[in-house]
Amino acid sequence: MPVAPVSRPSTLATGPALEVVDLSKAYLGARPRWSGARPVIEAIRGVSFRAAPGGILGIVGETGSGKSTLARCIAGLTQPSAGRVVWGDVTLTALTREQWRLTRRRLQIVLQNPYSTLDPRMSVGQIVAEPLANFEIGTPRDRLEMVRETLATVGLAPSLAGSRPAALSGGQRQRVALARALVLRPELLILDEPVSALDVSVQAQVLNLLLQLHRALGLSYLVIVHDLAVARQVCDSLVVMFAGAVVEEGPADAILSRPMHPYTRQLVAASPEIGKDRTDGRAAAGDAARPPGAVHRPIGCRYRPRCQLTQGEPVCGTVDPELRELEPGRRVACHLSPEGSADG
């Protein structure tokens, strides 16, 4: 693996692009019941994409598609098995522990569940101030001021600084988690399902807040979402994952209004929508729910067992499709998509 020269974080240019190159992560599965080696489970395999600086990139896919593993690898919480992540002129995957610690000031991750990621014994003020203390930023008095400012940025009353997480609603907790990430003024924020635990009316508030912060603070987001309508609401571009690999990539609006990969089409068809024709759900029927099977990969296209496009073409059964640029800015991993997209 090539090791890029690591410069001191403070001298880096702001707002670098994030580039993921051929990233893979494999886990060892449980030992089989009788005997034999532990199976290798490929959570993500050969994932490559580029996130433009200052943009909002969404990663969508179903449960088990590898979205969260990907985010954890990028954030340095999980060591990938192969491949690299380059952020500006820093190769994140080659950083030492101490270098990571310094880099993390500029790259923050907000985890999914606001009910389990906040320490119940700490007050909101302490939670938000903790990263400042870790990096020895400012005097205690400065920190108090920065905490108050950050709480205001995410729309929380400064009076809440003394409350414990248990006293807060789900929406307020998610705002606290955001404040904790934003207090260091990061350049890249990784958000793992930022609204999936929230009620619809609160979800709208948090999505609006995220968009507003993005405009005001000029940071980049990498957002993991499973709800396509939420993805459309916040993201500029999308990466669609299936069974650990990228199957489609491009601008969010284009992908969702005219999906090219059969998997993306199935996702769009199956998404419930107010006012949608009741029969539309049928488009999603068929072999939709068959799990991709992380251990025994089919030879050839991994989507083939569920694909509604393939008519048993030999190429689908023998060759794993690469991402191909079918239109400017749109890449699709499907042997058949150009023909298929004509009727879609």
Binding site: A269, A270, P272, A284, A285, A288
Partner: peptide, 10 residues
């Protein structure tokens, strides 16, 4: 997941 949801609802 949405695809499973659509199938099960149907």
């Amino acid at each position: 997941d949405v695809a499973t949801q659509a199938e099960i609802l149907q």
